Amino acid sequence: MRKPDGSFWMDLVFPPRCPFCGELMKHGEQTCKNCRTVLPSVFQKELFCVPETVVPCYAPYAYAGKVRDAILRFKFEQEPSVGVFFGRQMAILLKSLSNLPPLDAVAAVPMTRWHRMRRGYNQSELLAKTAAAQLKLPYLRLLRKVKHSRVQHSLPAQARFGNVQGVYAARPAAVGRKILLIDDIVTTGATLTACAEELLHAGASEVVCAAAAQAQSVTDKD
C-alpha cells in the first residue's frame, strides 16, 4: 500500500478549496466538481512597445465569471492559494506554445513597498514565482516601481498609458536576458507595455508577457 505523501497530510490540516468558488475539495483535485467546466484556453494580445517592438502576451483564461471572482479574492481577500493555481495554469499554457522562444528568467510587475505591506504580498510576484518553479526558470526582481500612480481600473483606456509613464525602472540584471514578464490581469496592456519597454531599454534581449487572465473590456476591474 502506497504511503500518503506530505501534501496528503497538509490537506487534512488545511483542506484545499476550489480556486474558483472556495468550496472544499478532495486531496488531489484541482477544482471542485461544479467548476470543472471552467477550462483554460489560449488568449493572446500584442503589446506595442517602443522602439517598434511587438511583445506577445498570453493568458489561460478570460477575465469573466468565476475566473474574475477568483482573481478578485486573490488580490483583495488574502487567498494566495488561488494565485498558486493560476501560476501553474500559466506555466502549463506556456509549455504548450510551440512558438515560445527559449527564456532564461521570470520577472513580475512590481509594487511599491507600501502597497506590498498593505496587501501582504505582491500578487503578480506570487504568480511569477509559481510559474518560474513550474518552468524551471529563476525568478528575478528585475523591475522597481519608482513612483506612485493612480489605480489603473479607475481610468479610461488612453489615460492608462499616460498613467504608467515613468513609474517603473529596470535593474541592470536585465541586460542580455530573455524574460518572461508576468502580471495578474491584462486589459489595455498599459502596465505590461511600460514594464516591457523598461526591460528592453535596459538591455533585455527579448520579453514575453503573460497574465492569469485577459479582460475582454476596458471597463473590467483590474
Rank of each mutant, 00 (worst) to 15 (best):
W114H: 02
C32S: 09
Q89E: 15
A70Q: 11
M117E: 05
A107G: 14
L140E: 11
R144F: 08
S154H: 14
G166E: 01
L39N: 14
N34I: 05
V208D: 01
C32T: 08
V38L: 06
G65T: 01
L126W: 05
D222N: 13
S217R: 12
V67R: 14
G120Y: 01
D5E: 09
E77A: 04
V67Y: 14
H148A: 14
E52S: 15
Q152D: 03
D184N: 08
G189R: 09
P101E: 07
C49W: 13
P15S: 12
P51Q: 10
L12S: 00
A213H: 11
S7L: 09
W114E: 15
L137M: 02
P16D: 04
D183A: 06
A157V: 08
P110M: 00
Q123D: 10
R141F: 02
M111W: 10
A202V: 09
L94M: 02
A204R: 03
L72Y: 11
M25G: 03
Q165G: 03
A107C: 15
V207H: 02
H27P: 11
R2A: 11
E46Y: 10
D11W: 05
L142E: 08
L127E: 01
K178H: 07
V146D: 04
R88I: 06
P40K: 12
N163Q: 06
I179Y: 03
G189T: 00
G189E: 05
K147L: 07
A131I: 07
